[in-house]
Simulated scan of single mutants.
Amino acid sequence: MEQGTHIQVKTNIKVVRFGGRDLIPSEVRLRHLQQLVEESEDLYPGIDVWFRRKVVPELKSRSLRSALVLYDGAEPVGAAVVRRDKDAKLCSLRIREESQARGLGSLLMSLVVAEIRLNRAEEIHFTIAAHMWEGAIGEFLKRYGFEFKGLAKTQYRRRRKKMLPLFDSDPEFACSAPFSAVWRNVEEKLSEGFENFTLNGSFGDIDILLSIRPKFARQIVKGEKRVELRRRFSEKWRGARAVIYSTYPERSLVGEATVEEIITGAPDEIWEEWKDDLGCTFEEFSEYSSGKTQMYAIRLGAVIAYAVPIPISQLEFHVSGNLPVPQSYVNLKKQSKWQSALKWGSILSANR
């Protein structure tokens, strides 16, 4: 390696979601969430009781309560608890201090807002101690359009006798914002931190989108098909990272792969060399290569299958517009709407 050359290694942040439509959380995940929530015990004595009596039963009953936990490796570094409704509530939001400068706050807010949007929220509200609203946390929240609305009707800390001396000087504020305003600000800040990490091992630097028929797309993500055929392709995509689009009727992103090698040759040469990796019959191959004197065999590697396919319709909903999909492939670096969609894809895949 040449002196002075730097290779940026992105941190993979794992996102675990539970509550609502998902499976009941494991006890280990609940303990991690509890640890992060209870780090606010000095500000909210009794928050442990709220967590045990309210949060845990509602998460286990698949109610409108949801929770998200961020992991850096095995270490939980951030968490949020929300109630998903038309008048949604941000119940708890925490990023550990050592991780706050890495863009994880923006990531967690994006995850929260994507979660809330599924329930067609009209407003998001929360309560916060006055000194926090006037400090760094408040400045962070104001960037998303939240505003002070007055003293909170319920002063949770006033219920605790040892907090009474603080009430007059540090009451709890009620803050809120229209969902549309928060959404707009999340979209503007969506790229913050994405240069530093990937989510759940996927949606890193994607270069191209490959359109592949559902049968063959499934074979690729299952590891049954290692070579994809194209009548036209470019050598410049060697080493590129591709997202795999399963065409009609699925119309979904199903995984990722790296273009490891591009081999050109006459159709009979390509078939003889790669027939065991193409995932198709000789009849299918002959039909596709009919009339061509040269074919492209694209050897794929480092395949990641998404846990749940992401429908293009969901991405279009989040970017508020149509996403053009090609018959063969497209350079995503030149597609600004697709760049935004991939970031939302990362968020959506993490929220599943």
Rank of each mutant, 00 (worst) to 15 (best):
R184L: 11
A257T: 02
Y245N: 01
E316T: 11
K149P: 00
G4I: 02
A307C: 04
V82A: 04
C280T: 10
Q35V: 08
I206D: 03
V182I: 13
S320R: 15
I13Q: 06
R102K: 15
C280A: 07
G255V: 04
R251Q: 13
P214Y: 05
R226D: 11
F126Q: 00
G239F: 03
R17K: 13
L141N: 01
Y306Q: 01
G73P: 05
T154Q: 14
E316N: 10
V28F: 09
I137L: 15
E75Q: 12
P214I: 02
E187C: 15
E273K: 15
G20T: 02
E147C: 08
V259I: 15
G223P: 07
V113N: 02
S169D: 13
E172H: 06
K343G: 04
S66I: 01
V56W: 01
I220S: 05
A136G: 00
T264H: 08
S180T: 12
P45V: 06
D277V: 00
R52H: 11
R117D: 10
Y306H: 04
R31C: 05
G321Q: 06
E287P: 00
V16E: 10
L278S: 05
E38T: 11
V227R: 07
N322T: 14
E195N: 13
I312M: 06
K337G: 04
C91Q: 09
A67W: 02
I13R: 02
I13D: 02
R184G: 05
I312E: 03
L348P: 08
A242R: 09
M295F: 05
E250T: 11
A307P: 01
A177L: 09
P249A: 06
R299G: 00
S92W: 01
K153T: 11
F317R: 15
I208T: 08
L300S: 05
S176F: 04
E256F: 07
R158N: 07
K222C: 07
I270F: 04
C280E: 10
Y329I: 00
L209D: 01
I270L: 10
H32W: 01
S99V: 03
G19E: 01
I304L: 09
R299Y: 06
V77Y: 05
L164E: 15
K142S: 11
S290M: 08
Q100V: 00
V254F: 04
I13K: 04
L151T: 03
R213L: 12
R143G: 15
K153G: 14
S26W: 00
F148H: 14
T154N: 13
T11I: 08
P214T: 03
H32M: 01
G138Y: 09
Q327L: 11
F18G: 00
G301A: 08
G135E: 08
F194S: 14
Q335L: 08
Q35I: 09
H318V: 08
N322I: 12
V319Q: 07
V77C: 12
F317W: 11
W183M: 11
L68F: 05
S234I: 05
G223W: 06
E41C: 04
Y288C: 03
I47F: 04
Y156M: 11
A74K: 12
W50H: 13
E250I: 12
V182Q: 02
